[in-house]
């Protein structure tokens, strides 16, 4: 393939890395307390991406379905865990629910796009499947975590209103309905907002990449349109799936609100303390 772009060499990467000096300087000067975090974040970003580059080169060269599927599963797994970790409360099974919501929504939507819309042959072609899945995952994860956080906040903050509704004879679904709707809306607002200003205020990341790689703007834009619709669908599916799974945990079949099932995330210290505590009691 003839490269119609300028490759970036190692010393050019180094130059770019120097830009972080601006952040470090600010952090030291204003005592933001971010110096260590900045260095770790920078190192993580560079290592993760370089590693990804190597893995993708390898997988692109192989181009057989199993390794591509495997990397897709790993990516979706990280997204599922990250979606839950961004929220402020936990319930038993929340990580499994997060994984299920992320997997189902992103695989279904990416599958439909690869097979039905873009019509890639073979369907797993890494050049298409992996970037598309990545774009979908990155956005679904945000949508899911926002929606889930709103839902769990509501279960705590609106407990009295929900229970008053249940007391009147409402079913659990009738009592949860407003909160489910609000949570879904919260999850979908970022993608709707970004659709509103796309191309005017923001140049989307994937399109930027295609332009840099020498793709004609008119066709880069077409890809961007497809991907935004994919993202919007996956966010809606993922957020709805996650909220319904959380709803089943927090409202039982006796139409009771089980908000005591929600707790703050446990730290490692809590877990150790708990084990020692339970052993002491025996």
């Amino acid at each position: 393939m003839k490269a119609s772009y300028l490759a970036i060499s190692n010393w050019q990467l180094g130059l770019a890395a120097l830009l972080i000096v601006i952040n470090l300087g600010l952090s030291l000067w204003l005592r933001l307390g971010l110096t260590k975090t900045l260095v770790i974040a920078g190192l993580r970003m560079v290592t993760q991406l370089l590693l990804l580059g190597f893995i993708l080169e390898y997988i692109f060269a192989l181009n057989t379905p199993l390794p591509i599927l495997a990397i897709g599963i790993v990516m979706a797994g990280f997204a599922g865990i990250a979606a839950v970790r961004r929220t402020r409360r936990r319930f038993i099974g929340i990580y499994w629910n997060g994984l299920l919501a992320v997997f189902a929504s992103s695989f279904v939507v990416t599958g439909v796009a690869l097979g039905g819309i873009i019509q890639v042959h073979p369907w797993y072609e890494a050049q298409y499947s992996i970037p598309l899945l990545g774009m979908v995952l990155g956005n679904t994860l945000t949508g899911i975590s926002l929606a889930l956080d709103r839902f769990m906040d509501g279960v705590i903050g609106e407990r009295e209103r929900i229970e008053a509704t249940l007391s009147l004879g409402a079913t659990r679904w009738e009592a949860a309905h407003d909160l489910v709707r609000d949570s879904l809306r919260t999850g979908m607002i970022p993608i709707i907002n970004s659709m509103m200003v796309m191309g005017i205020v923001s140049l989307p990341g994937m399109m930027t990449g295609q332009l840099l790689a020498g793709v004609a703007p008119a066709s880069a834009v077409r890809y961007q349109i497809v991907i935004v619709f994919m993202i919007a669908a996956a966010v809606a599916l993922g957020a709805l799936g996650m909220i319904l799974l959380a709803y089943r945990q927090l409202f039982n079949s006796r139409h009771q609100l089980r908000n005591e099932r929600l707790h703050e995330p446990l730290t490692l210290g809590d877990l150790i303390h708990r084990r020692v505590g339970s052993r002491g009691r025996k």
Partner: peptide, 27 residues
């Protein structure tokens, strides 16, 4: 039917709130 100490009404006009429960399946 339980009436709690704190009314915890949803936001909206009084009439709409009073009418809302009539849409529940039981009622």
């Amino acid at each position: 039917m339980l009436l709690a100490q704190q009314p915890a009404l949803p936001l909206g006009r009084v009439e709409a709130i009073l009418a809302a429960a009539f849409a529940y399946r039981t009622h």
